[in-house]
Design a protein around this nucleic acid. Structure first.
Length: 265
DNA sequence: AAGCGGTTCAACCGCTTGGCA
DNA sequence: TTGCCAAGCGGTTGAACCGCT
């Protein structure tokens, strides 16, 4: 199917926005709102298509947008959310107030992918040691694994987040899922897990739960980490002290020491 | 100072989704 | 149920910028 580009009509401007155009757009939206994006440029007197106006507004001109570099906390949050949500940039952006999906996508491709790649290189020996006893036929990690592609089936009992803070479950009880398939990663190794429905992830990712659990773990001087493991009727996901042996025993049954390079991340 | 290659990020393209008649 | 339209979304592009030689 071939669809004509939205700006194909002659006379519609493309490319970078000028300060004058920005001013016209902002003034119009402040005055009348943006009921219909397609009609907006005509009404506002802009030689742009509605789509271009919407993008300019949502990605740049909106008053609630936070400009400037991402903090380390924000970067960590993106990494953690990306592990769970994959390339759903708008869903990730919804959890980072003031940041747009476009911005997050750019940061991911320009900074965070590199950072993760470096981490994986430095932890590869540790990882190999820990997985050697449990997952002898583990496939080689691929570049593509970052996009949460579901590769060949991996043992569902061993997986986790590879950074300190991550998602968590309901207060003191594990959250059980249904039996569909999804993917999570451990330091680049994709593992198939039972997939949870939307309400499950909403609950897991709810700010209240997350903050509460992080606080609890930090209150005892621990570093928050997420463990995922088998449960009687599916799998469970819970938050632990990342530096505790219990955490590693849960996700790597049989482990005899905490992965040195992951301590205190 | 100039050229070049790598990086960044705003903007675009086109597919998907949802609402409505 | 079907078709159309508007908006949302993710992938990609390319101009601007930056650092190195």
């Amino acid at each position: 199917m071939v669809r004509a580009p939205c700006c194909e009509k002659m006379g519609l401007k493309k490319g970078p926005w000028t300060p004058e155009e920005d001013h016209v757009l902002v003034t119009y939206i402040q005055q009348y709102g943006h009921g219909n994006w397609r009609a907006l440029p005509k009404l506002a007197g802009l030689l742009r298509c509605g789509k271009s106006c919407r993008l300019r507004w949502t990605n740049y001109l909106r008053p609630d947008i936070k400009r400037g570099n991402f903090s380390r906390e924000e970067e960590d949050a993106i990494i953690n959310l990306h592990e769970v949500l994959g390339n759903r940039w708008s869903a990730i952006a919804a959890r980072l107030p003031g940041r747009t999906d476009n911005e997050i996508k750019n940061v991911w491709h320009t900074h965070l992918k590199k950072r993760l790649k470096q981490n994986r290189t430095t932890t590869s020996e540790t990882r190999a040691r820990f997985f050697s006893t449990k997952t002898e036929q583990e496939p080689e990690p691929s570049e593509k694994s970052e996009s949460l592609d579901c590769g060949p089936a991996s043992p569902p009992q061993c997986t986790s987040s590879d950074t300190s803070s991550a998602t968590t479950s309901d207060n003191n009880s594990n959250i059980k899922s249904n039996n569909d398939k999804t993917c999570m990663e451990f330091d680049g190794y994709a593992a198939n897990l039972p997939e949870a429905d939307e309400s499950f992830w909403s609950e897991v990712l709810s700010a209240e739960n997350f903050d509460q659990m992080v606080d609890q773990v930090q209150a005892i001087g621990g570093v928050p980490g997420v463990g995922v493991g088998p449960a009687d009727d599916g799998f469970c996901l819970d938050m632990y002290d990342h530096n505790s042996m219990d955490f590693w025993l849960n996700i790597l049954p049989g482990a005899d020491e905490i992965p040195e390079l992951l301590l205190g991340i």
